[in-house]
Design a protein around this nucleic acid. Sequence first.
RNA 1: GGUCCAUUCGUCUAGGGGUUAGGACGCAUCCCUUUCACGGAUGAAACACGGGUUCGAUUCCCGUAUGGACUACCA
Length: 519
Amino acid sequence: MEIRVRFAPSPTGGLHIGGVRTALYNYLFAKKMGGKMLLRIEDTDQKRFVPGAEEYIIESLKWVGIQIDEGQGVGGPHAPYRQSERREIYQQYAQQLLDAGHAYYAFDTEDEIEAMRQRLQAAGAANTSYNALTRTQMRNSLTLGADETKRLMDAGTPYVVRAKIPLKEEIRFKDLIRDWQVVHANTLDDKVLMKSDGLPTYHLANIVDDHLMQITHVIRGEEWLPSAPLHVLLYKFFGWQAPQFAHLPLILKPDLLDEKGNVIEVRHGKLSKRDADEMNFPIFPLTWNGTNDNDEDITSVGYREAGYYTDALINFLALLGWNDGSDKEFFTVDELVQSFSLERVHKAGSKFDIRKAKWFNQHYLRAKSDTELAAGVVEALKRQNIACTTEKAEKIVRLMKERVTFPQEIHEQTMFLFAASETYDATAVQTKWNAEAAGLLSNFKDELTTLTDFNAEAAKHTLHVVLEKAGVKIGKVMPALRLALTGAANGPDLMQIMDILGRDETQNRIALALGKLGR
RNA sequence: GGUCCAUUCGUCUAGGGGUUAGGACGCAUCCCUUUCACGGAUGAAACACGGGUUCGAUUCCCGUAUGGACUACCA
């Protein structure tokens, strides 16, 4: 039988990084088994629908390299793949459950249900849910009888369809990650299957679609574990074979850190979209423009825009909750597909640590060719209307490659190569700029004129000659020279910087500094 | 409160009845060096606790604690 998995997000906003990992594990499993990956949009809650979210999800998956074989955006034999367009299908199956006596109509208002809970709570009941016990005291087709039920429905009274959970039944299923799960039906409640707006809840839609779309493996987040018994029961009600389940551990939110990496505040709970505006790391794959809890417009910078490479992000994410049993840290997507297995997915949740993601990014950046990185530099500068030849860009890349984590840092940290810094690092000026250094710089500047060939090697030689003549160690002038050339107290190799700057600009900047900072 | 799930360095994790409990990120120190990075070396750092079972438990079992998820006409 063909392996078929699905990723089924609801379009309620940006796809957060935990969702990306869920999609990734589905993808890796499908690829490994030679199966298919489906994308289904679970938009049965019209209140939470966010325009643009679906497109965002599709684009995000595309960016991280997760190919969808069938489903929303690509089509397929089980279309439509958007649940809001499958309304009639769910109604039909709900009716089937109703007819078989596995579901019933309920007319209770919100207030009536609340009153029941209050009553139960006051009586000291541990369980206040709408279930096999309490439904006997509520307004539903079971207590009202067929005639009254028909009368109410004919009168247009709002109703929901609830699952009729048996009082006594042991529900068991095997989770691929957590092994056997046994739950007694008396701990379940009569979940709403069809809402009063005629749309199904997740539980019904999910089971019906997974069955119809021939899903063999349901790989989803741990938050679904408590409702899995209900799902198993529904499959049984329908007389369908349930798919295999694999409930993934949650990604937990990290503690709040300051710039230095010290813990400001210990945080608990699963990582959620709401953390986006508070944590100082991306939570969405692509930049997302949305609103926060206070309905204010916010922009959350995505991993793509922050300069993360997809292979780095995938590598990092794959290892958050899974490993192959070895010390291996770097995996290509192909290698991940080869070695992935649900059995080796962890049971416990893992705290998200952006520092490791950065480390992966740095590693992948270094693996890029100079040519590729240089092209990025040229393009980025072009957007700022700064001209830069490929040759110069490659020199810059060689200068910066080992020093940065993100590609954009290459040009951001070398802007001094395109325009002399307006300011000089104040503390460095105070401690490193003095008459002696200034004098030596002046000599050096003059000496450069005599060179026939100006390059890093020649500049270095010239500097040494000047220093030897004065009987001074190199440490005396270097900080001052750096100040003059870059305005900063530290940075990449100065000889290479002079090489890129060229003789004229090097001399100009020394002269400029001499004028501004004094001799 | 109830139901369910989990628990190895700060974090991600390997391991598994007998190990100096391994690796990685991060951190610290030293080396390299014109600075800052990079790189190299070294170091600090963990089996939540209590009972069993056993010759022996971090590993198996049971409790406790802690953390987490769920407990909606949200997914």
